[in-house]
């Protein structure tokens, strides 16, 4: 039976709640494997595990429960070891590294901030900032909307202005929140956000961080800013960018 791994924590970590269920249907019982000063939160890996919504939620939930008791290094979703002894073997082999990470992340949580533009508001913003765009829009309006070419010309200029605004606002978001964080990690790109940034925040400063996000929203009403957290420190478990592990190809 292969072993699903949720995260790595200190062996001194408080016990998990009784009957905590993990991935699988029915949920596999979550257990703890200890090796020296470290422990791994694991369960049996269900046959044919797929990245379904409920499995992702189960992974998240186990990490949230474990994280409530102290620092946990979260595994990426779907990490499966051939057996328990392979897990304890890795803990023994890389003990120093994991202990260093646990110390570095102790008392800290991840907050993820995503921002998009509210379309009408950002259009308003760029129009208000450009007499040229306003003049062009006004001319089109007077011409009953303008010809196809005139519309394209206006639209292209507006799109360029909004794009420039996206880049500017990405900087604004990061600069506003960076001073309150111990570390900053860029989220994966290409998911449709103008900013997707994770901040490593001291638990004690979490309230101050949330206030700063509110201030950011008020100062920039054309931004939709979404705050998610506290999360396990997904973006900060490795000191540098990590390579994806070998994947089982779907057959």
């Amino acid at each position: 039976m292969s072993t699903y791994v949720y995260g790595i924590t200190a062996a001194a970590h408080p016990a998990l709640p009784e009957g905590l269920g993990g991935v699988g249907d029915p949920p596999m019982p979550v257990r703890v494997l200890k090796e020296g000063d470290l422990a791994a939160v694991v369960s049996d890996a269900p046959e044919g595990l797929r990245p379904k919504r409920r499995e992702l939620l189960a992974h998240q939930n186990v990490l949230a429960e474990a994280g409530a008791g102290g620092c946990v290094l979260p595994m990426r979703f779907g990490s499966v070891a051939p057996e328990d002894s392979a897990v304890t073997g890795v803990l023994a082999e890389r003990a120093e590294h994991y202990q260093e990470r646990l110390r570095a992340l102790d008392g800290k949580v991840e907050y993820n901030v995503k921002a998009t533009h509210i379309e009408e508001a950002v259009l308003h913003h760029v129009m208000a900032g450009s007499p040229e765009l306003r003049a062009l829009a006004e001319a089109n309006r007077k011409a009953g909307g303008g010809s196809y070419e005139q519309k394209l010309q206006l639209g292209e200029m507006v799109a360029a202005a909004v794009k420039a605004q996206e880049a500017e606002d990405a900087g604004v978001v990061q600069q506003a929140l960076e001073p309150l964080a111990a570390a900053v990690g860029q989220g994966p790109e290409s998911t449709g956000w103008l900013a997707n940034v994770s901040f490593l925040v001291d638990r004690d400063s979490a309230a101050r961080f949330a206030e700063a996000v509110d201030e950011l929203r008020q100062a920039h009403p054309h931004l939709d800013v979404r705050l998610n957290g506290p999360l396990p420190p997904y973006s900060f478990v490795e000191p540098g960018p990590s390579e994806p592990a070998e994947t089982i190809t779907g057959e």
């Binding site: 290094l73 990426r76 990490s79 499966v80 070891a81 990590s242 592990a245």
Partner: peptide, 10 residues
């Protein structure tokens, strides 16, 4: 994101 261990499969 999250920890990746080479010895494990995903």
């Amino acid at each position: 994101r999250g920890l990746v261990i080479d010895a494990f499969v995903r």
